[in-house]
Design a protein around this nucleic acid. Structure first.
Lengths: 337, 337
DNA sequence: GGTTAGCACTCTCCACCGTCGAGTGCCAGC
DNA sequence: GCTGGCACTCGACGGTGGAGAGTGCTAACC
């Protein structure tokens, strides 16, 4: 248990370090915050905080730096979230409406907007259902020997594939065929469709059903995440040297926020979690913090995350992630309503 | 006009500098290539080459570095392209087949494969027609009060949009409506559809036609380019300091190869062009080279480009860009054939 | 007991300096 | 035209030393 004074000092150390990226000295704390005590006293307190693991020391004659534990305490107990100003919220909402209708554009836009609001990188995944069911299928005439199979999933995804035709067919015939296909696939998920396809006698229809199943499974294989705000992140002092920066780029290229959510308890949509440094199960992410949120509804859930150094402005970041996630959720809902 | 010996020396300087990123000294040239003359002689020749602008000098006591003009001469006259080894070609072709059917996945995969083959960044744009015409439209039932409008363009793009319905409609009725809509839009480009829409009496049909026109125009607004190979690029010695690296990231985030193609004469598909340093009209790209190619066919043309420092392995890069562009073209054709 | 001034100690940062080595450019001689 | 020799220039490197920033400790004070 921390004394009140130590708590408040820890808070000041975090605030100061987050703002400046420089180790915080006892003198600086006294000078900037009229604490009513001398630097020596502050030093004693900081030493205790260090004993208890909340802060560290890069080297003897350096100031204090928060440890992961210190940040955790800060996030859990000390911090008061900094709400969005009315015009900040308005600006973000406004930028969202710049998007055209494409889902991917929305996603990258959302990521970019959030990234610039928190000056860190943002990773976002497409909203999807764990086991999407087919909502509708249609066949569109393409040429005489091929049609386009279009499948609409219940998570809103629309996927298509060219389907060869054994014999030329008019659009009307294709429509009828899609109708029959629908009887076998609508309302079902991929696995069930595959099973059912085996019972279909018409070989061409069975092939189409298999194709639908494949479309339903497609999202797994294909890259689902968008990354934005790389320059904002890399401009931070922790990546000042070429070596560290290159490292950061490599790491982010392959980072999957999805894993984070699996490691922890599945959260309710709207909940926002913070993973600080060594709390991250990924060994390569020990210097990073991630603020994750889910967005969407029952049909489709996506992930939105800010990624940056542990020295992160949690007070600002957390409410902004929450805000954007909520905004995305409602826009997503609206677009499908 | 360069003497034969100067030419060959220029070639050696380029090769050496490209390989090592270190200014090339007269002694190194003699030591490594049994030139039959002494370093002093080479120095005289290099001085002449410098007078004529083919190479430069970072400072008095440094070796020689090719200038943009030197690279240009090298690319135009000196270099012999390094053809792909059989197994290299096979590996690349094989990697291509890893892709699922999604076009975007193909594109990023192609970019990544090429990037790793030439250890530089690669930018690729979606194939598209300058003025796509509608090949087919279809309406898919979504809910009772909304249908999904699916439009297939002649460049292979499939775009969809949710269309509100004034009154509930069965799939059969939607099919009939799509048929009528098709009479107004198939084979036409956006502008013509807009004009024609004004003459349609049925307001709901007219609205649908407008929506089709908007879909046809959609590609302009939404980001069309994919970037891969960033880490490979940034690992190059020219970006060793954090400052330069950050600069490079910022620059690439916003770089549009498309502009390059507009500046120069429009090339035939399959042609590969090289833009070296100051030849680039973009003032911020004076230290970069770009090897661009187009791929596709009459229906849809895309751009594929390697981007890197002027110190680029042109001998390897150019044939590899050409190869991948050709491969993409044929796969694209195949997928729509 | 908590607080404080004072001071020794540690460590980083930076500027300075001299040396070394790598290259060139030029000249005189072959 | 080629070459060896040599003076000259410049960057890279390593060591040194001082300045500055901080801490930790101790002894005194309230």
């Amino acid at each position: 248990m921390l004394t009140e004074r130590r708590e408040s000092l820890l808070g000041l150390v975090v605030d100061e370090y987050v703002a400046t990226a420089l180790p915080v000295s006892s003198r600086a704390l006294v000078a900037r915050h009229r604490l009513g005590v001398s630097p020596a006293t502050v030093r004693n307190e900081l030493a205790k905080l260090e004993d208890e693991g909340y802060i560290t020391h890069p080297h003897t004659s350096a100031g204090r730096v928060p440890s992961d534990r210190g940040y955790r305490y800060y996030v859990e107990v000390l911090m008061t979230e900094e709400p969005l100003q009315r015009d900040e919220a308005r600006t973000i909402a406004h930028q969202f409406h710049q998007a055209e209708r494409s889902l991917d554009e929305w996603l990258t836009l959302a990521a970019a907007v959030l990234a610039s609001a928190v000056t860190n990188a943002v990773v976002v995944t497409r909203p999807r259902s764990p086991l999407p069911r087919i909502r509708n299928v249609q066949l569109v005439q393409l040429r005489t020997d091929a049609a386009l199979l279009v499948a609409v999933m219940d998570d809103g995804a629309v996927r298509e594939r060219v389907l060869p035709l054994s014999a030329p067919a008019e659009q009307a015939a294709l429509h009828a065929r899609a109708e029959r296909l629908g009887e076998h696939v609508i309302g079902r998920a991929a696995a069930r469709i595959r099973r059912e396809a085996e019972t279909i006698e018409d070989a061409e229809l069975a092939a189409a059903a298999i194709a639908v199943a494949e479309l339903a499974e497609e999202h797994r294989s294909w890259q689902e995440t968008f990354l934005e705000g790389l320059p904002a992140l890399l401009a931070q002092p922790e990546f000042a040297t070429g070596e560290r920066m290159l490292d950061a780029v490599r790491r982010l290229e392959s980072y999957e926020v999805g894993r984070l959510l699996q490691v922890a308890e599945p959260d309710a949509v709207g909940d926002t979690r913070v993973v600080i440094g060594s709390e991250n199960p990924d060994a390569e992410m020990q210097d990073w913090s991630v603020v994750v949120s889910r967005y969407g509804d029952d049909d489709a859930i996506g992930t939105l995350a800010v990624v940056g150094p542990t020295r992160m402005h949690y007070e600002r970041t957390i409410p902004r992630v929450r805000f954007v996630a909520a905004l995305m959720g409602s826009l997503l809902h609206e677009s499908r309503a």
